[in-house]
Design a protein around this nucleic acid. Structure first.
Length: 222
DNA sequence: GCGACAG
DNA sequence: ATCTTGTCGC
């Protein structure tokens, strides 16, 4: 792995990211959620993809793919570590989503190519990055009220929104992944909330990926 | 040189 | 990311 080469690739691909709304279907009929985790001390990469129907936000499909891990975690290069498993899961989907929420940053990245942007470009689907922590950029302190938001600024440009989705919870970092504007990205995330800190697509992907109790209960209820 | 650093 | 129960607080 050659970090300098990967950095050059990021700069080249970042120039291809579409930062404006460019949907094939409006409003989206199916919204996806993507999450990646690791097993066996990092040797195995596990990607989960879920599809929810909009606006009911009902889970209609879920897939999990496991592959051998190819790269270590290096801040700023997360997408190269996660996309192989995401692609594997993506190829098993019966229906492709009209819009996809990816766990991680979009253009709110040092070179404007977080995993949401990188993967969105690879499969040419509108994506939104929903991250739980800041990677780069600065923002003014948020109000305590849910709904409070501030632009995330880096090198003089807005690269995302910092948004408090719920009271007494740390804010979310929402940004354009690909083919979705910054304002629309935040709007769609707001449209997919179900009373928790994370939007439903992301939350379900998390649940499926970690096989948590809520998901098991849902599956057994069939 | 010193800190920061998605998952 | 992952290892992991109960517990404090709204």
């Amino acid at each position: 792995m050659d970090i300098a080469a990967l950095r050059a690739e990021q700069l080249q691909r970042a120039a291809e990211v579409v930062r404006q709304d460019d949907f094939d279907v409006l409003p989206p009929r199916f919204i996806g959620g993507a999450d990646v985790g690791f097993e066996q001390e990092g040797a195995v990469t596990r990607a989960a993809l879920v599809i929810l129907e909009y606006p009911s936000l009902k889970l209609v499909e879920h897939r999990v793919a496991r592959i051998a891990t190819t790269m270590p975690y290096i801040p700023g290069f997360l997408s190269f570590r996660e996309y192989p498993a995401l692609l594997a899961a993506w190829n098993t989907l019966e229906r492709k989503p009209d819009l996809l929420f990816v766990d991680g940053h979009g253009i709110s990245h040092p070179r404007r190519l977080g995993v949401a942007s990188h993967f969105g470009l690879m499969v040419d689907v509108p994506t939104i990055g929903v991250a739980k922590k800041r990677l780069c950029g600065r923002f003014a302190e948020l109000g305590a009220e849910p709904g409070s938001r501030q632009p995330l600024i880096d090198k003089g440009e807005q690269i995302g929104w910092v948004w408090r989705s719920k009271a007494r919870c740390n804010p979310l970092f929402v940004a354009t992944g690909h083919r979705v504007s910054l304002d629309s990205a935040l709007q769609w995330v707001q449209n997919c909330m179900g009373g928790y800190r994370l939007p439903e697509p992301t939350r379900w992907a998390d649940a499926v990926a970690s096989n948590r109790t809520a998901f098991q209960r849902w599956q057994n209820a069939l």
